[in-house]
Simulated scan of single mutants.
Amino acid sequence: MKKRLLTRRPDPTMGAAPEEYPRLLGADVDLPEVEYDPARALRQWESYVEVFAKAGWDIVELPGTPSVVTSCFVEDSAVTYRTVALMTRGAVRHNETDSAIVREQLEALGYAIANPPPKAYIGGGDVQYLMGTVHVGRGQETNAQGVAAVRRLFTALDLRVVAVPLRGAPYLRKAATLLPDGATIGNPDLLLDTRVFDRFLPAPEPAGASVVALSPDEVVVSASASGTAALLQNLGFKVTAVDISEFEKLDGCITSLSMRLRDRV
């Protein structure tokens, strides 16, 4: 299976204007006193990318967008399935320059591009799929029209679409992510109803709600989620922990730093 990782290195100016974080990251996010270390963030990003490279993923590094606080969070820009890419436009996290760069790269890779309707807001981190099911978060980033747009597109591709009402989470992948075996791991405090998932596993700590599947038996978690790492290892998964603490200061998670492209699911 061909696997590509679209990613963008953090810009050195990230963290230079902390008073802008609440506006860029959401009305309920208050990070005015964050002390962000750009040099450390770059080292963390390099370690993150190295994990995927060693696992056989092709790394596609996107051009930078200087001085954009969220520019390294490329997951915000689009959602892909097989050869179709839905360009996203979150209600809070959205940058036209970032979107244009991602769109150009996806077109170069042969993806057919779909655009949401004008009044539809869809956060890239609100949409995830596995085993024929698409989950779409309904919260700060994705509105009702956005959920409807996701449902129309993916049901036409013979996928089951399940809306997930969020409670305080900025986007779905901060609240819950899918494990390779089809179960969902997440933070029940950020979900209005965990029964929307077929199988739900509470994460021992908040950062453990965000997991990336490397392969059918391998996952990547944040180094700040040691309890979750131990839990997943006990369930038979190979677990790699990566320190992303600088990005977590900006409300990012382990999925935010890349867009994972697979030629089949």
Rank of each mutant, 00 (worst) to 15 (best):
K3A: 13
R4C: 07
L6F: 10
L6P: 03
T7R: 00
R9Q: 11
P10I: 03
D11W: 12
T13L: 10
A16M: 11
A17M: 11
E20P: 00
Y21C: 00
Y21E: 01
R23T: 08
L24M: 13
G26F: 01
D28S: 15
D30L: 12
D30R: 15
L31M: 13
P32A: 00
E33W: 04
E33S: 13
E35D: 07
Y36R: 02
D37H: 14
D37V: 04
L42H: 09
R43M: 07
Q44P: 12
E46T: 13
S47F: 00
F52I: 00
F52Y: 09
W57G: 00
I59Y: 07
E61N: 05
L62Q: 05
P63W: 07
G64K: 00
T65S: 11
P66E: 04
S67Q: 14
V68M: 08
V69A: 10
C72H: 03
C72E: 01
V74T: 15
V74A: 06
D76R: 06
V79Q: 03
T80V: 12
Y81S: 01
R82H: 15
A85W: 02
L86V: 07
L86M: 15
A91M: 01
V92Y: 02
V92Q: 04
R93P: 02
H94G: 01
N95Q: 13
E96R: 14
I101V: 14
E104G: 03
L106T: 04
E107I: 12
G110C: 09
A112L: 15
A112H: 12
I113C: 13
I113D: 09
A114S: 12
P116N: 06
K119C: 03
K119A: 13
A120E: 05
G124W: 10
M131P: 01
G132E: 13
T133N: 02
V134C: 09
R138I: 04
G139N: 07
Q140G: 00
Q140V: 10
E141D: 09
N143C: 08
N143M: 05
N143T: 03
A148R: 14
V150A: 06
R152E: 15
L153P: 02
F154Y: 15
D158C: 12
V161L: 07
V161I: 08
V162F: 04
V164P: 06
R167Y: 00
G168R: 08
G168M: 07
A169N: 08
P170D: 08
R173T: 09
R173W: 04
L178I: 05
L178K: 04
L179H: 12
G182E: 05
A183E: 14
G186Q: 05
L190H: 11
V196N: 13
F197R: 07
D198F: 02
L201N: 07
L201V: 14
L201G: 03
P204H: 08
P204G: 07
A207D: 15
S210T: 14
V211Q: 06
A213L: 05
P216Y: 01
V220N: 01
V220P: 03
V221A: 08
V221L: 15
Q233R: 13
Q233N: 10
N234A: 12
N234Q: 10
K238R: 13
V242W: 11
V242F: 09
S245A: 15
E246H: 07
F247E: 02
E248M: 09
D251T: 15
C253Y: 02
I254T: 11
T255N: 10
R260T: 08
L261A: 02
